[in-house]
Lab assay of single mutants.
Amino acid sequence: MEVRTIKVFTTVDNINLHTQVVDMSMTYGQQFGPTYLDGADVTKIKPHNSHEGKTFYVLPNDDTLRVEAFEYYHTTDPSFLGRYMSALNHTKKWKYPQVNGLTSIKWADNNCYLATALLTLQQIELKFNPPALQDAYYRARAGEAANFCALILAYCNKTVGELGDVRETMSYLFQHANLDSCKRVLNVVCKTCGQQQTTLKGVEAVMYMGTLSYEQFKKGVQIPCTCGKQATKYLVQQESPFVMMSAPPAQYELKHGTFTCASEYTGNYQCGHYKHITSKETLYCIDGALLTKSSEYKGPITDVFYKENSYTTTIK
């Protein structure tokens, strides 16, 4: 009895394709271990004539594949690729409408935090270190965002349907971005203890939790000093293409032309909904596939993004 075979390709990165001759009487799992086709788990399936010449994702289970996976995804987590594939199996079914010149995501599976993050990423200057993220990001900007969303979920250790947080998501993504040249110098002034300067680099240099107003941050924000008295913390120097200011959701007025974009969060910790506000020729609110415009805006804002380049204080 002759062994019926077909020729397929296996890959971990969709760049390096490895030619395989597979036995049609055995499952993919018996031949390769966990195997995925377009995100779908085909591990328990036997090869079919229609699979001839198709590319299958496999887990990096030998040295060659491990090197290829690390170079593309910059992670050695053995569960990463499987999590990416199972997320992709959902995100490829989502709709990605162009809204006001940006790629958004039609609401499904509690994905409003991903839509808000995706919209924000198209408006701030950011370059990702893992080629996987950078490639998928370019495709997302062009309207094909399924891979990018699935990668975000995998890097953030999230599953489809789980509630997510924009600030946490951005923080994970910033860790995989090139923020080497970003720098922030802060000064804390206390009447009792004097003053202390701190220099922050990388992710810490672009994120701040405690106030939404970048102007206020430049002037000074009140913080408790270690001595128990009130101290003032203010920005001395900022070198970065953008800054992200966050605070627990509270009524906040966004003035046209003073910011790049913002995240609105309605609801409580267990259950809520994100919308995205962007400042173009007027203010726009993007909620999944829905767009509304207004000249002014007041609502429960939790993150505001500002364009920056270089700032030095005039406070002496």
Rank of each mutant, 00 (worst) to 15 (best):
E2G: 10
E2N: 12
V3E: 15
V3K: 13
R4M: 13
R4S: 13
T5I: 10
I6N: 06
I6M: 12
K7N: 10
F9T: 09
F9P: 04
F9K: 10
T11I: 08
T11A: 06
V12A: 08
N14R: 10
I15S: 09
N16T: 09
L17F: 10
H18E: 10
T19S: 14
V21C: 15
V21T: 14
V22K: 07
V22G: 08
D23E: 12
M24T: 12
M24H: 07
M24K: 10
M24R: 11
M24I: 13
S25N: 14
T27Y: 09
Y28Q: 04
Y28F: 15
G29Q: 08
G29W: 09
Q30H: 13
F32Y: 08
F32G: 06
G33L: 04
G33A: 05
P34C: 11
T35I: 12
Y36C: 05
L37T: 10
L37H: 13
D38N: 11
G39C: 15
A40R: 13
A40M: 14
D41Q: 13
V42P: 03
T43M: 10
T43D: 09
K44H: 12
I45M: 13
P47G: 08
H48G: 14
S50F: 11
H51R: 04
E52A: 14
E52V: 13
G53W: 11
K54L: 14
T55Y: 08
F56C: 06
F56V: 09
L59D: 14
L59F: 12
L65H: 08
R66M: 13
R66A: 13
V67C: 15
V67E: 10
A69I: 10
F70S: 07
F70Q: 09
E71M: 07
E71A: 11
Y72L: 08
Y73A: 04
H74G: 08
T75W: 04
T76L: 15
T76R: 10
D77N: 08
P78R: 14
P78K: 11
P78N: 10
F80E: 05
R83F: 05
Y84T: 03
A87Y: 05
L88W: 10
L88N: 05
T91R: 04
T91H: 04
K93C: 09
K93L: 10
W94K: 04
Y96T: 05
Y96V: 03
Y96Q: 02
P97D: 08
P97I: 11
Q98K: 11
V99Q: 08
N100M: 09
G101F: 02
G101N: 09
G101S: 06
L102Q: 04
L102F: 09
L102G: 05
T103W: 09
I105F: 02
K106V: 14
A108L: 05
D109G: 04
D109L: 04
C112H: 03
C112D: 05
L114A: 05
L114S: 02
A117G: 05
L118P: 04
L118F: 11
L118W: 04
L119G: 04
T120P: 04
L121F: 08
L121S: 07
L121I: 12
Q122D: 04
E125S: 09
E125M: 05
E125Q: 10
F128H: 03
F128Q: 04
N129R: 15
P130C: 08
L133I: 04
Q134F: 06
D135T: 08
Y137P: 03
Y137S: 07
Y138Q: 15
Y138P: 08
Y138C: 15
R139A: 14
A140Q: 03
R141F: 08
A142M: 13
E144M: 08
E144W: 07
A145Y: 03
A145T: 03
A145L: 03
N147H: 14
N147S: 11
L151E: 03
I152Q: 02
L153R: 00
A154N: 05
Y155T: 00
Y155Q: 05
C156P: 04
N157Q: 09
V160G: 04
E162H: 04
E162L: 00
L163F: 13
G164T: 04
D165P: 03
D165M: 07
D165A: 06
V166T: 06
V166C: 07
R167Y: 00
E168M: 11
E168D: 04
T169N: 03
T169E: 04
Q175N: 11
Q175G: 08
Q175T: 08
H176D: 03
H176K: 08
H176A: 05
A177C: 15
A177L: 06
L179T: 03
D180T: 10
S181L: 09
C182E: 02
C182Y: 07
C182Q: 00
R184E: 04
V185E: 04
L186S: 09
L186H: 08
V188P: 03
V188M: 09
V188E: 06
C190A: 01
K191W: 07
G194Q: 02
G194A: 03
Q195M: 15
T198C: 14
T198Y: 13
L200C: 11
K201T: 15
K201Y: 15
E204F: 06
V206G: 01
Y208E: 08
Y208L: 06
M209K: 15
G210S: 02
G210P: 04
G210L: 00
T211N: 09
L212F: 02
L212R: 05
Y214C: 04
E215I: 05
E215N: 08
F217M: 12
F217E: 01
K218Y: 02
K218Q: 06
K218G: 01
G220Q: 03
V221M: 10
Q222F: 09
T226F: 09
K229W: 09
K229T: 10
A231L: 02
A231R: 02
A231E: 00
A231C: 08
T232C: 07
Q237E: 11
Q237N: 09
E239I: 13
S240W: 00
V243L: 09
M245L: 09
S246P: 00
A247R: 03
P248M: 15
P248W: 12
P249C: 03
P249W: 01
P249F: 00
A250K: 11
A250R: 10
Q251S: 11
Y252A: 09
Y252Q: 09
Y252H: 12
E253S: 10
L254T: 00
L254P: 01
K255R: 12
G257F: 01
T258G: 08
T258F: 07
F259D: 00
T260K: 00
A262R: 00
A262Q: 01
A262M: 00
Y265L: 00
G267D: 13
N268A: 15
Y269P: 15
Q270L: 10
Q270G: 13
Q270T: 10
C271S: 10
Y274G: 00
H276A: 00
I277K: 01
I277V: 11
T278K: 00
T278E: 05
S279Q: 06
K280C: 12
E281Q: 06
E281I: 02
E281V: 03
L283A: 00
L283H: 00
Y284W: 11
Y284H: 10
Y284K: 01
I286D: 02
I286S: 02
L290F: 13
L291G: 09
T292F: 13
T292A: 10
K293A: 14
S295T: 13
K298D: 11
G299R: 06
I301L: 07
I301V: 10
F305Q: 00
K307I: 10
E308S: 09
N309R: 10
N309C: 11
N309A: 14
S310M: 15
Y311P: 12
Y311A: 08
Y311D: 07
T313Q: 15
T313P: 09
I315W: 15
I315V: 14
I315F: 15
K316Y: 15
K316C: 15
